[in-house]
Amino acid sequence: MNVIVTGGAGFIGRWVVKRLLDDGHHVTVIDDLSNGQKENLVEFEGNNNLKSVVIGDLKNEELLEELFAKGDFSICYHLGASINVQDSIDDPRTTFFNDTVGTFYVMEQCKKRNIKVVFMSTCMVYDRCYDETGITEKHPTKPASPYAGAKVAAENMVLSYFYAYGLPTVVVRPFNTYGPFQKTGGEGGVVAIFINKKLNDEILQIYGDGTQTRDLLYVEDCARFVVEAGYSDKVNGEIINAGLGRDISVNELAQLIVQDPTKIEHVDHIHPQSEIQKLLCNYGKAQDLLGWKPEISLEEGVARTEAWIKEGYLLK
């Protein structure tokens, strides 16, 4: 198939592109590089199935029209977005226009050409988990940040195109994804940041008391989930979670990574109002509809991520 991946130069986007290329599809990428990096796609440069990497803004309707008119796409994997929760609180306008308005422009192109849309949402739209069975897709949403609010708005718009126009769409809500190619600085995820600090012999700083929990999904498991949601008609019109099905407190995660309590300190949370105290995924729906379940344990995923970050240091 010919497929397009928005945000394909980003962390998860890069792994989605790899999976699609491994499956033999012809892939076009569009990314404005506000979060993504060209370097993430370097290893695919010799692959004839990577048709083009377009540097451009999803809010540029003329560019989208030109790209979609000649692409003959079967599926649009829409991952392009502003993704930083803290930034969305400080600058909600940018997040809204990128995540909600940008999604509208993508949907219009897909509607015009009957292209299936796999929309990347987030577990951050949920209210906290209250029991050990985990968060299902029927769990209450609570957009505690403009990032989550923009994603909920975009989700509803994406699903409205399924109901109003019969356009095949699916909303995917991966839980906290980590792994190689994730940024190790302020825009990165907690696993990559903690590992980077450990390797630099720096103190790991934890926001708040560290009892907040996360369900951490290894990026290759996430990419497999996202890609297969595009292949299956069973999930059209649905919202689907993916996670490890196990949560860990940030305190426990820090200890797992650094294994030295003297290297850990607690600091005041920048935006405590947007913290979700407990996140635990119930991925039963993904297992039922897609036959998907995670394959990489947290310990294995952390080890792989650390090896990748170490390799980057050696190359420098």
Rank of each mutant, 00 (worst) to 15 (best):
M1G: 08
N2S: 05
G10T: 04
V17K: 08
V17Q: 06
G24I: 01
G24W: 04
H25K: 09
H26Y: 13
T28E: 10
V29Q: 01
K38D: 14
E39R: 14
N47F: 01
L50H: 08
I55P: 09
D57T: 11
D57G: 09
K59D: 12
L63I: 11
L64P: 02
E66C: 14
E66P: 13
E66I: 02
F68V: 11
A69N: 15
A69D: 15
I75R: 03
L79K: 00
I83H: 10
N84I: 15
V85C: 00
D87T: 10
F97K: 05
N98P: 03
G102L: 02
C110R: 03
I115M: 12
V118D: 04
V118Y: 03
V125E: 07
Y126H: 07
D127H: 09
R128I: 14
E137M: 07
P143E: 03
A144L: 12
A148V: 12
G149L: 02
V152R: 00
N156A: 15
M157Y: 08
V158Q: 04
Y165V: 15
G166E: 14
T169G: 06
V171R: 00
G186T: 12
G189N: 06
A192P: 12
N200F: 06
Y207V: 00
D209V: 07
Q212M: 11
R214S: 07
L217G: 06
Y218N: 02
V219M: 08
D221E: 10
D221W: 02
F225A: 08
S232N: 10
V235A: 04
G237W: 07
I240E: 00
A242Q: 04
S249V: 08
V250F: 06
Q255I: 10
I257F: 05
Q259M: 12
I270H: 13
E275Q: 15
N282S: 13
N282L: 01
N282M: 10
Y283M: 01
Y283Q: 10
P294S: 04
P294L: 03
S297F: 14
L298H: 00
L298P: 06
L298G: 00
E299M: 08
E299L: 05
W308H: 11
K310N: 08
